[in-house]
Design a protein around this nucleic acid. Structure first.
Lengths: 68, 68
DNA sequence: CCTTTACGTCAAGTTTGCTTTACATATATT
DNA sequence: AATATATGTAAAGCAAACTTGACGTAAAGG
């Protein structure tokens, strides 16, 4: 799964630290999601979408290997 | 977090078993999500939305305690 | 120089998502 | 009465999401 976290974050002019704080998660979580190390949980993804004022589908994108 | 899995599943006339199969997960996973025991992962939520021909936001709904 | 800000890695530990297996119950069909 | 279908519970185990803490690097400003 791909995502446009970095893009959206920069559009808001937030540092990873500030974004983490706004979302109520650790900075490691932001880094890991941006770097594609793992996916956010569904509730976190929805809170992110809300903060970025868009839909989950405009930030996160399924890829072939997400389907089994 | 609440969801309308049951509603959407029945609209398609699928049993839990059949839905599980279509999604490539176990029947337990469907039961657990429908019963609200836990949330699907983000990729699974997006695959579910795709199968139900709608958006993640039309199936899953944030509640107060999803925010920290 | 020195400190601060921003981004990054690594590692250990807890919690949550998902699997498998086994078993229970209710309804319908033969 | 017996079998099938659909839904449910419970428990054990593995993998993924998330946390905290320690440390590294580079750029910018005093």
């Amino acid at each position: 799964m791909k995502n446009k976290m970095n893009e959206h974050r920069k559009k808001l002019g937030f540092s990873q630290d500030k974004l983490a704080e706004k979302l109520g998660v650790s900075r490691q979580t932001i880094i890991s999601i941006e770097k594609g190390r793992y996916n956010p949980s569904l509730p976190l993804a929805m809170i992110i979408a809300e903060l970025f004022d868009t839909s989950v589908e405009n930030i996160f994108f399924l890829e072939q290997d997400d389907y089994k």
